[in-house]
């Protein structure tokens, strides 16, 4: 009986010292967790690569886009397009059609191209869907929640400038982003201009 209690006592003391030693964790610092950012996760798999013929057509179209648009289009005051930044694609020869749709009868028929500005012949939602083909809604929302509330009413191009090497809004400073929100939301007239542009 005596030795039983002795053993009991020793075990209890051992357990208690284990617990006291866990107090040493009281001052451990948490390691910062780094998140890897992936926005565009769609992998190009073999099935989605277009066949030779379709590719040939696209390359030809894209060449024709660049031929006209590398200079300033004085009639519509369209600035020369010198870069497509991150969307550059050598396979599609700079990839105009991926974002703006197939050339079709443009510029004779001006309503076939997706212009990514508010128009009265193509809804903003339809225009944005071209971007959403690759950039999924879930991923956009995870990266920046404001995508959810703007996807249907505001052109992606209102915040994103793709015809330059670096899109300024990517990883922008918080004060830059806040200014962007405020500038548009403060002035009800400005907001209207962005959503309902007269003509083209």
């Amino acid at each position: 009986m005596k030795s039983l209690f002795k053993a009991f006592g020793y075990i209890a003391i051992l357990l208690s010292s284990v617990f006291v030693s866990t107090l040493s964790f009281a001052d451990t610092q948490t390691a910062p967790v780094t998140e890897t950012e992936t926005l565009f996760t769609q992998e190009l798999d073999q099935a989605t690569l277009l066949d030779q013929a379709t590719m040939a057509v696209l390359v030809k179209e894209n060449t024709r886009c660049i031929r006209c648009h590398q200079k300033e289009r004085l009639l519509k005051q369209i600035k020369p397009i010198t870069s497509v930044g991150k969307h550059k694609s050598e396979a599609n020869l700079d990839n105009c059609t991926a974002c703006h749709g197939n050339k079709g009868d443009h510029p004779i028929d001006n309503q076939v191209i997706i212009s990514h500005v508010p128009t009265d012949y193509m809804t903003i939602e339809t225009q944005n869907e071209q971007c959403m083909d690759c950039h999924k809604a879930d991923e956009l929302a995870e990266k920046e929640w404001t995508h959810d509330v703007h996807e249907k009413d505001v052109n992606c191009s209102s915040c994103h400038s793709l015809h330059q090497e670096i899109d300024p809004i990517i990883n922008a400073e918080k004060s830059f982003r806040v200014k962007l929100c405020v500038d548009c939301h403060r002035d009800p007239q400005a907001k209207k201009k962005l959503i309902m542009k007269e003509g083209n």
Partner: peptide, 23 residues
């Protein structure tokens, strides 16, 4: 438990008293 079940001889040992107080 130690108070109720320990024998009298055990209870008078210094190590027992200290042990119980430590717990």
């Amino acid at each position: 438990a130690l108070t109720f079940f320990a024998s009298d001889t055990l209870k008078h040992q210094k190590s027992f008293i200290i042990g119980q107080a430590l717990l």
